[in-house]
């Protein structure tokens, strides 16, 4: 069974592992096992991010995304967002715990001063404290809702990101419950992004690891090729170089080079997580 290769058709989306794997939570479903003590990847500083943004401008990148870990643990984060928003549209994936009213007002100012959209994506894994906190730790639900309210009060409309860590989250009724929850916070323009789980990192232990058949082979190649996969049009910059995608940053084999220009070639879809992206049509983009 031979492993198919995906080629890069264009570099539309540039991700940043801006907080490394450092987080103020240690979620049981985290596909890269982030925690307060996980320094597999370190935080990125403004100068490093700038270097990649400058290179991105020469390669025609459309948008940037920032994740971690928890991005707002990074002391440079707001300066980094200002630089990113001068370049193009920018999204931040956060657990919502560090979104106090002051920070939300500053973020709103950054958004207003840019011609581009700033999107804050806040994660909720359950629509009750009991469900959410079982994954994310005691008190996480209440603090995330407070962060969402603070964003809303500051004029920013977050995208609520929900993983299908509970099967019913992905159902029509499950999605409706999240829309109702958001509406209940007084948000009149609710926005929701669903994500499947990747059975790697902490999630492999919480639920189940991949089985050996969950791999892609040449025979899986769709008629139109692999252009539906995000690795055909995005890359992930970290403090240790550039990886193929946001999912595989804890696999050294996912690293493709030091600069973006090193990483414009093919990548083998040899990891089980590639199977999830293909079968579920995943994109980490909003």
């Amino acid at each position: 069974m031979s492993t198919p290769n995906v080629s890069l058709s264009s570099l539309d989306t540039l991700w940043f592992q801006v907080a490394g794997t450092v987080c103020n939570l240690a979620c049981t479903h985290c596909f890269i096992s982030c925690s307060p003590t996980n320094h597999t990847h370190e935080m990125m500083d403004l100068a490093t991010v700038r270097t990649y943004l400058e290179e991105a401008a020469t390669l025609g990148v459309k948008e940037t995304y920032f994740t971690g870990g928890e991005p707002f643990l990074n002391p440079d984060m707001e300066a980094i967002l200002e630089a990113a928003l001068a370049f193009g549209p920018t999204s931040v994936l956060t657990n919502g715990l560090l979104l106090d009213p002051e920070r939300c007002r500053r973020l709103s100012g950054l958004s207003e001063r840019s011609d581009y959209s700033l999107d804050l994506r806040v994660s909720l894994d359950g629509y009750t404290a009991e469900e959410h906190d079982a994954i994310r730790g005691a008190g996480a639900f209440g603090r995330a809702l407070e962060g969402i309210r603070n964003l809303h009060s500051a004029g920013l409309n977050p995208v609520i990101t929900v993983t299908e860590v509970y099967d019913e989250n992905g159902s029509v009724a499950g999605k409706q419950r999240f829309f109702d929850l958001i509406a209940g916070l007084g948000i009149t323009r609710p926005r929701l992004k669903m994500m499947p789980v990747f059975q790697i990192g902490a999630e492999a232990e919480r639920h189940a690891a991949y089985e050996s058949w969950q791999r892609l082979s040449e025979t899986d190649t769709p008629e139109g090729g692999w252009d539906h996969l995000q690795c055909s049009n995005s890359r992930m910059a970290t403090g240790q170089g550039v990886w193929v995608c946001p999912i595989l940053v804890n696999e050294p084999s996912g690293k493709m080079g030091e600069r973006l220009a090193d990483t414009l070639g093919d990548f083998p879809l040899g990891h089980s997580a590639c199977w999830t992206c293909h079968v579920y049509g995943v994109s980490c983009r909003t």
Binding site: T37, N250, D262
Partner: peptide
């Protein structure tokens, strides 16, 4: 759980092992 360790997929390894493997990967 991760003091001094890296998470390499599902394994916990010494940080240096991950860093070296990452440094050698890619072009």
């Amino acid at each position: 759980a991760h003091r001094g360790l890296a998470t390499w997929g599902e394994k916990l390894v010494p940080l240096g092992d991950f860093r070296r493997a990452a440094a050698e990967s890619g072009s």
